[in-house]
């Protein structure tokens, strides 16, 4: 019959951004990772190029307050110490990069001073060599101080700093620009807001190759459908040629562990740990299938499941 695969050709291409800097590049990371670069829908290699597989970032939270108890059990004692945790991500769990979440900066909780957090980032950079993303606590004034210090102490490492929000992006953008870092632009499940956030940053002087977008990943069972469609639309918008949407997307799928159903005791739904692992792996797969260029994950087992799948999806074995 001579059936030919119906191909979609797009005019646009996702920008490639570099995360991390090696010695040659002025940093101390083990690799410079590339995210993005694709000119088609994810994994459809018969019609488009996908030069880089979605990267797997593992998150490291600097306070156990934010880590569900069950995870502390199943991931072991390392999650009580961010330095140990990060080392495990590198040495045992196969992360491509680390996302350090400085939740302890939260002025309503631990309120750890910026100097201490600067020290933590410095130690982490010295104790492991993965490229890094560093997130603040979401309180603007505090994050401004923290990010300035983080930016300075990590000069040359090409971190990505986050999260830049519509109403709070200037200090963090300035911090990232000061030392050649990148920035993560957060928006709330809406293609226009994502675009607006990028425009704000570009107007402020941030270079497009220094921006990744976080369009908010809602986990499975808690709004995943909104994120899935939002990511698809962002990707299609970028491919159809809108340069302001062509930044790679980073999607935080560790949010799966905040879903009560993933972890609650309920023998009808099987054992909680394995269910949580599937919960996170499926959340991440949906992000990747929709168009994520970097996924943030937490559990070593879900990472194995996820990675196996995307490797095969990309044509490997």
């Amino acid at each position: 019959m001579g059936f030919e695969l119906p191909k979609e050709k797009f005019g646009g291409r996702i920008k490639e951004v570099a995360i991390g800097a090696t010695k040659d590049q002025g940093g101390t990371r083990s690799a410079r990772l590339m995210a993005g670069g694709s000119n088609g829908l994810p994994f459809l290699k018969f019609e488009s190029e996908m030069p880089h597989l979605p990267l797997v970032a593992m998150d490291v939270v600097d306070t156990v307050r934010m880590v569900p108890e069950q995870l502390q059990e199943s991931m072991g004692a390392a999650v009580k110490d961010p330095l140990e945790w990060a080392k495990k991500c590198e040495a045992e769990w196969g992360a491509d990069l680390c996302v350090l979440k400085l939740q302890s900066a939260n002025p309503e909780e631990e309120d750890r001073p910026a100097e201490e957090l600067e020290g933590l980032v410095d130690k982490m950079l010295k104790s492991m060599a993965l490229p890094m993303v560093v997130y603040g606590c979401g309180f603007e004034e505090k994050d401004a101080k923290v990010m300035e210090k983080v930016s300075n102490i990590a000069k040359g490492e090409r971190l990505f700093l986050g999260l830049a929000e519509e109403k709070a992006y200037k200090s963090i953008a300035a911090a990232s620009m000061a030392n050649g870092h990148g920035i993560v632009a957060f928006s709330n499940l809406d293609i226009n807001l994502a675009k607006q956030m990028n425009i704000l940053l570009l107007d402020f002087g941030t270079k497009p190759e220094n921006i990744m977008m976080d369009p908010l990943m809602a986990p499975l069972g808690m709004g995943l459908e909104y994120s899935y469609s939002n990511i698809e639309r962002l990707r299609l918008g970028a491919l159809s040629g809108d340069p302001v949407l062509q930044m790679p997307m980073i999607c935080d799928c560790s949010c799966a562990w905040n879903v009560p159903e993933a972890l609650e005791d309920n023998p009808e739904h099987g054992s909680a740990e394995l269910r949580g692992v599937y919960w996170e792996a499926m959340t991440a797969l949906s992000a990747a299938v929709a168009g994520a260029d970097v996924v943030i994950m937490r559990h070593p087992r879900s990472i194995v499941m996820f990675r196996e799948t995307i490797n095969v999806l990309a044509g490997g074995e």
Partner: peptide
């Protein structure tokens, strides 16, 4: 790996998916 494929099928256009095993930990998500 096949369970993850089922998730792929749900998102990407499989009208039906038949599976050899269905552990509850996987079925509910």
């Amino acid at each position: 790996a096949e369970h993850m494929k089922a998730a792929l099928g749900v998102m990407k256009y499989s009208s039906a998916v038949l599976m050899d095993t269905m552990p509850r930990e996987m079925v509910y998500p």
